[in-house]
Design a protein around this nucleic acid. Structure first.
Length: 104
DNA sequence: AACCTGACCCATT
DNA sequence: AAATGGGCCAGGT
């Protein structure tokens, strides 16, 4: 039980430290992040963690979108934050991945 | 164990 | 990047 909790926290830390690396004006996809921490097929977990990111601290989780550039459902503030950074938006719910996807 | 859910991804149409 | 269908993985009932 205890070891499981520790492993989870380690995973969360890895995810958040990658998110922290995303430069202003760029966005990354969940799958991208999952790949960077060596868990390519675990993009869903990344989303899960980010949904609770504020619980762990302040991270630029608004710079993370899905593979189609769609913003997180049920989080309207995200679009505003991105626009303020100068991220090109296709519409209120999609960013232009082609122009602003983060290249690690 | 079985089943459902989700801030997902991919190939196909 | 629109709609569908199938796959994946972790958590919760």
């Amino acid at each position: 039980m205890e070891t499981k909790r520790i492993l989870q926290e380690a995973l969360i830390y890895e995810i958040l430290s990658v998110v922290e690396e995303i430069p202003e004006g760029n966005v990354a996809t969940y799958g991208q992040i999952a790949g960077l921490i060596g868990k390519e097929k675990n993009a869903r977990l990344v989303g899960k963690v980010l949904s609770m990111a504020e619980y762990y601290g302040t991270y630029p989780c608004h710079r993370v979108v899905n593979h189609a550039g769609r913003l997180a459902p049920g989080w309207f503030e995200q679009g505003i934050l991105l626009k303020e950074e100068g991220v090109p938006m296709k519409d209120s719910t999609h960013v232009d991945l082609k122009k602003c996807q983060w290249d690690p």
